[in-house]
Design a protein around this nucleic acid. Structure first.
Lengths: 201, 201
DNA sequence: CCTAAATGCTACACGACAGTATCATTTAAG
DNA sequence: CTTAAATGATACTGTCGTGTAGCATTTAGG
């Protein structure tokens, strides 16, 4: 669990602090990407100095945070059996997991990449997993869009929009609970967007 | 054309300065939403002091910029005859216009709204026009999604993604030029996403 | 219990940026 | 041409956020 395994093992409470800081950062930065370290410290119930003790700089904190997010994506990709399960099932499962893990936080992923390079904030592992999924979807005839990169972009964009959709929307009407309804909507929308044969659910 | 018609008519060169500043701001802020006023001034070929003369504060500049963007949207909605033309044709025309006018700059629109309120940066007029279009699309049976707000969100998200798609993508293969190909892709993707009957082009 | 680690708190240095002011110079417009 | 507006350049102020340091206190862990 430790953020950096390079140094001596941290004490138990210190480890908890890092976890609380990362959680607070995720929560605060999701609302305001330029939030102060002090705001994050407050949300974590800690002093700003402690934040600086666990993370040498703001940049370091952001990188650690994107690391956590990437881990979640990887976890989701594994659980969804993106490489082995029937691709439609994998897509559905992955979508559910993304909403459960609240990994749909697109804004946070773009905090690390500096404005100049515009590099992808997602790890190559995650990108590869997602592209594999959409390649398999295409080979199975579930979608027609030939470019995995485009598929990923559309998928993540729709996940983001579905996550921000107000609970009162008629798009989330029946059946399952909060996350289930959003996942369902995302699933159907993405398949339609990428040329799936299901015109509707 | 003047940003604020409240005061005496500006001299011709001053008016040009404001225009150049707004153009530079649009260009620079599209890359880095937190760019300095000095960077904007440099891009406009003006001194930072001049920026402060034409716009009383950074906030004022941002508001003026979103105003310009909103005007473009309104212009596009009018030209596309969103209220009167056959809805599919209006959607296609509007999409073309958005790419021509480079109005797809989603990031800039979110600069005005402070993180707390999370209000929509688009003017009610634009929102109403877009929702009208999607309501008409639904009534015409072109899409099935019942929530206009969801339709708008998905539409704008896909426009944004299509705008960022690299020119080398196989999704932009044949037929028309740059903007035409992106508009075409957006059009097909959106209809599919919202439950349109066209599984592919 | 005892030691070392971790934290809270305060103060401070440093840099970045917004905004203001002044003056000389250029430029539009009558 | 003549006047007033607009600009460039420079300097200055004030604020905010990051990062550092020191000290007293609390807490984990042997």
């Amino acid at each position: 669990m430790s953020a950096a395994a390079g140094s001596r093992p941290l004490r138990a409470d210190a480890e908890r602090s890092t976890a609380r800081i990362l959680a607070a950062a995720e929560e605060v930065l999701a609302v305001d990407a330029n939030a102060t370290l002090e705001r994050i410290a407050d949300a974590a119930g800690l002093a700003r100095a402690t934040v600086h003790r666990r993370f040498s700089s703001r940049k370091a904190l952001l990188e650690a945070l994107t690391g956590v997010l990437n881990e979640r994506y990887v976890c989701g990709l594994e659980q969804a059996r993106v490489a082995t399960a029937p691709p439609i099932a994998a897509l559905y499962r992955l979508t559910e997991l993304l909403f459960e893990l609240k990994a749909g936080n697109r804004a946070i992923m773009e905090l690390t990449a500096d404005p100049a390079t515009k590099m992808t904030p997602m790890s190559p592992e995650v990108t590869a997993g997602l592209e594999l999924l959409f390649r398999r979807l295409r080979e199975a005839g579930e979608i027609t869009a030939p470019d995995p990169a485009w598929c990923c972009a559309v998928y993540l964009a729709i996940v983001h929009e579905a996550a921000q959709l107000p609970t009162s929307s008629p798009m989330l009407g029946d059946a399952a609970g909060e996350v289930g309804a959003r996942a369902d909507l995302t699933y159907r929308t993405v398949l339609g967007a990428l040329g799936g044969g299901h015109p509707h659910g």
